[in-house]
Design a protein around this nucleic acid. Structure first.
Lengths: 213, 213
DNA sequence: AAGTGGTCTAGACCACAGT
DNA sequence: CTGTGGTCTAGACCACTTA
């Protein structure tokens, strides 16, 4: 018997789910500066009472905003407005291997070339390197489920990553290695991407030069 | 009284939450090819029985995987393995304005310079343009809550975006405009980013040349 | 009509932080 | 110790798809 119970006044025809209402409320509090970066925001219980919903609903809203990097939640302490991360404002430098794994695919790679050269005049000028700087050069092909998907042509300042040539690039990608060795890109970073050719979008060519100063 | 109840055999010392176990199970089914792209995967109820958990737990696992683009869920129909999107494998070209708004901040911008020039020899060669190609050049500063955060120095092939100079760049960013005019980057795309200077990470300089062929 | 996912509830136990 | 977030349950109603 689904006859209307006498008490519940549920779902007025607004149609917007409660967890979205809460997300938007939190968002606007932050946008309007009511809650500043680093501030402690109301607890789940407080929001439950304010919105007259159960705790799981508030929890979902706050958890999703945490995933969006807008909030930081600390067990036993509270929920805070996150500091913005400026690192990834314009472009996000990603790991191709991580991307493939996140898609649920198998990532493999093959090293085609690996050598050392002195920086050319163009490179010296372009990245502001000292004359005589040695550069490592690697050419690696990445596969997604066995399909070649990206050809990575990378140049790295030898003084930044002296053990570059000794790595096993079929285990860890240069991106992942350099993130460990020099996690904060403090110098110039240039990425050139050749987008998929019309009609054959399977193979990308990526040139990456990372002579972190 | 928290004496152990006689029935519940909860939380064996594995410590891994149930929703993560389910996520990992789904992931490995996909990675091992048991569930292929486009396949219908078991229903929430089926997974409830398989893992002996409540539906909300299964729902959370599948909902998060949907957010990660690994699954597609259709109300009334079922849950399917998603098709991978290759568009954003290496780098993700983002809208600075969108980024700022997603952080809950206010985005404004000011046009410093806007003009037309013939492509230089270096540009002709670098992007493989026909001699005499006209290029638009814009210099725009982006603010995050009033703080200058990025100086965008962009060069665009005039034949791709003939109305480039007529746009109101304080309403829409060049990125957003070009995504509408030429949504599929079929040619070369070069991005140069000067990362934040040590100690003053507030201002980025970004040069973007987008002469889509 | 039966099945599916989308949402929600009113509880609960736990680990942890800040007294 | 109290309060917080992290997780989980066993139900429930709804909108939608599929047959």
């Amino acid at each position: 018997m689904n006859t209307m119970s006498s008490i519940t006044t549920k779902t007025p025809p607004t149609a917007e789910p409660a967890y979205l209402k809460i997300k938007n409320h939190v968002l606007s509090q932050i946008q309007n500066g009511v809650w500043q970066e680093g501030d402690l925001i109301p607890t789940e219980m407080a929001l439950c009472e304010q919105f007259q919903v159960s705790r799981m609903t508030v929890n979902r809203a706050l958890r999703e905003l945490t995933g969006d990097q807008l909030l930081v939640r600390i067990k036993g302490s509270g929920t805070y407005v996150a500091q913005p991360k400026f690192q990834s404002t314009l472009i996000e430098i990603r790991s191709i291997a991580q991307d493939i794994r996140e898609r649920g695919h198998r990532h493999t790679s093959r090293v085609l070339q690996l050598d050392t050269k002195a920086a050319s005049k163009v490179q010296l000028q372009r990245f502001g390197l000292a004359a005589g700087t040695q550069l490592f050069h690697s050419l690696i092909i990445h596969h997604d489920n066995g399909i070649p998907i990206q050809l990575e042509d990378r140049v790295v300042d030898a003084s930044i990553a002296p053990d570059y040539l000794k790595q096993d690039w079929e285990l860890m990608t240069p991106n992942e290695y350099l993130m460990r060795v020099a996690p904060l890109p403090t110098g110039d970073y240039t990425i050139e991407v050749r987008f998929p050719l019309r009609k054959s979008p399977e193979l990308w060519i990526s040139k990456q030069a990372s002579p972190v100063c």
